[in-house]
């Protein structure tokens, strides 16, 4: 198995990107991270549209971390698109957001989110979350096989 199991992180806040990257490094997670910065990019990446069409450089992720408050398409819209996709819907998708509003939480689960995580203020808590995600979603959980047969219409 030559392909690396990448994690797609959909996050627009540059500070959070640095902190998430650092937490993954500190937790010694071996999976590489791919960052996209808005909802449209997330859909382009997952659907293999330019500039993400090269699956060697931009492999399908084994796990998605999704912020809800994003420029352009929102996280919930990305989730709606993803979980309606015939193949990609299998990719475990964890919401990672600062919103604890019950309508966001409920909507995310309704759309098929596999988990809902709150961004903590304390970086130690973030490290703890990343360690838990690694232990459960990357090391314990058995991942589905994903072979996209076709691209969804634009």
């Amino acid at each position: 198995m030559g392909r690396q199991q990448v994690i797609l992180v959909v996050e627009d806040d540059p500070n959070d990107i640095i902190l998430i990257e650092r937490a993954f490094r500190k937790a010694r997670v071996v999976n590489p991270l791919q960052f996209v910065r808005d909802g449209d990019q997330a859909v382009d990446y997952l659907d293999g549209r330019p500039p993400f069409e090269d699956r060697e450089r931009h492999p399908l992720p084994t796990l998605i971390l999704l912020d809800l408050k994003l420029p352009r398409r929102s996280g919930l819209e990305v989730l709606e698109w993803l979980k309606a996709h015939p193949e990609l819907r299998r990719i475990p998708t964890l919401v990672l957001t600062s919103s604890r509003e019950s309508r966001d939480v409920g909507r995310a689960y309704d759309l098929g989110a596999n988990s809902y995580l709150l961004k903590p203020v304390n970086p130690e808590d973030l490290l703890h979350i990343v360690e838990t995600v690694n232990r459960f979603w990357l090391l314990t959980n058995h991942a589905p096989e994903i072979r996209p047969r076709y691209r969804s219409p634009e």
Partner: peptide
Amino acid sequence: TYTVSHDLRAPLRAMHGMSQA
């Protein structure tokens, strides 16, 4: 209240995280 709890806490998370880093 929504804004206070989310938008104000984002820069705070950065301050806290970056200084600890």
